[in-house]
């Protein structure tokens, strides 16, 4: 007992010092984007309610929606919405037992990250030219 090596054993990974695999990052981001999306919904619902409340209320909400703050919140919400949608579709495949191997999960993780950025850029382009 006295000569037990206490300093050189492998340590079990701890979340704060453990480099998360990409599949774990995309998994927790699904939950984070889902909850953060409520900011975008709140902004848009406030804007809708303001439109039927009166001209002053709408001017205020519309100013926020079209300001740089609104642009950041709504662009962020668009990305979060696309990310959550793609990750949710992956969950539907997971439920069907498809794509559960580590290598497949790694590939679908990158597909979700790249796909969400591409779809957000397409949304922005459609918004500004449409």
């Amino acid at each position: 007992m006295a000569d037990v090596n206490r300093g050189n054993r492998p340590l079990s990974p701890h979340l704060q010092v453990y480099k998360l695999p990409i599949a774990a990052v995309t998994s927790i981001l699904t939950r984070i984007t889902g909850h953060a999306l409520v900011a975008g919904v709140l902004l848009l619902v406030w804007w809708l309610v303001a439109a039927v409340s009166g001209p002053e209320a709408f001017a205020c909400a519309d100013w926020v929606v079209r300001s740089w703050i609104g642009f950041i919140v709504l662009t962020g919400a668009a990305w979060a919405l696309w990310y959550h949608t793609l990750a949710g579709i992956r969950h539907l495949f997971y439920d069907a037992g498809i794509g559960l191997e580590i290598d497949e999960a790694r590939k679908s993780s990158w597909a979700i990250i790249i796909g969400s950025v591409v779809l957000t850029l397409i949304s922005l382009i459609l918004f500004f030219i449409g």
């Binding site: 848009l44 439109a51 001209p55 709408f58 001017a59 519309d62 929606v65 079209r66 709504l74 668009a78 919405l81 696309w82 949608t85 949710g88 579709i89 539907l92 949304s123 459609l126 918004f127 449409g130």
Partner: peptide
Amino acid sequence: CALVLLTPAFLLVVGSAIGLPR
């Protein structure tokens, strides 16, 4: 599944509405 269908439709609708007068 419903939201997968609604998401693109909703984004197009809201994108068309932002910028309109009251």
